[in-house]
Amino acid sequence: MPNANKNKGDRFEREILAKCHQAGFITATRTRPGRNEDQGDILLNRAATAILQTKDVASPDWRTWLTELEAQMDAAGAGHGALVVKRRGVGGRPALHLAVMPVEMMLDLMARAGHQEISGGAA
């Protein structure tokens, strides 16, 4: 008997992987399910310095997911990771894909991307 939730999750992983490729992460790959060490769902690069964990469910479980993401980052040796959560469309609006991560990690990424302003003196 096919598992509808597994199929839905696999489809969402493939959808997010395609978005990664379109955004220039050409070596992004899905991880193999069922491994002893869960490294997330998608490795953004060959070095596995960043991972994504995808979620397509009706009711979010943020506390559990963020705890799992931390363990998955450790298992992958990744310095960055995010939950990619599908907020289902309502009222004719399309679904929205959200990236969720601790704010410190987001600030680190923004600084690395050059969005900091260096202070020249007193505020």
Rank of each mutant, 00 (worst) to 15 (best):
M1N: 06
I51D: 02
A58E: 14
M106A: 15
E13R: 08
I118E: 13
F25E: 06
R11A: 14
M73H: 04
N3I: 00
R30E: 03
I26E: 11
Q116P: 06
T54Q: 06
H97Y: 14
A111W: 05
G34I: 05
V100C: 15
G91Q: 13
A76D: 00
H80I: 03
V90T: 11
I51N: 01
F12K: 01
G34N: 10
W62G: 00
M110S: 11
Q72V: 01
A23Q: 13
A113L: 11
A99W: 11
F12L: 01
D74R: 13
R30F: 00
R63D: 12
H115E: 09
V85P: 01
H21V: 09
G89A: 07
E117Y: 08
I16Y: 02
A113H: 11
C20Y: 09
E104V: 08
G24Q: 11
L96K: 09
I42E: 08
N5Q: 07
E117W: 08
K55D: 05
L52Q: 04
D41N: 05
T49F: 08
L69E: 03
M1G: 14
G77Y: 02
I118F: 04
A18H: 04
V103N: 11
A71I: 00
K55H: 04
M106T: 02
Q22E: 14
H97L: 09
M101Q: 13
A71Y: 01
G77D: 02
D108T: 15
H21K: 12
T29V: 10
L43P: 03
A50H: 07
N36K: 07
A122H: 05
V103A: 15
R93A: 13
G91K: 12
D56R: 14
E104S: 14
G40R: 06
Q72E: 15
K6P: 00
A47K: 12
A95P: 13
L17S: 09
G34P: 07
N36C: 02
M1R: 05
M73G: 04
A122W: 09
N5S: 08
L43E: 08
R35Q: 14
A111G: 05
E68V: 02
V84S: 04
T49Y: 06
I16R: 09
H115G: 01
R63W: 00
R93T: 12
L98F: 10
Q72M: 12
N7C: 01
A23S: 15
G114E: 15
G91V: 05
L69W: 04
H80A: 13
R35M: 06
H80F: 15
N45H: 03
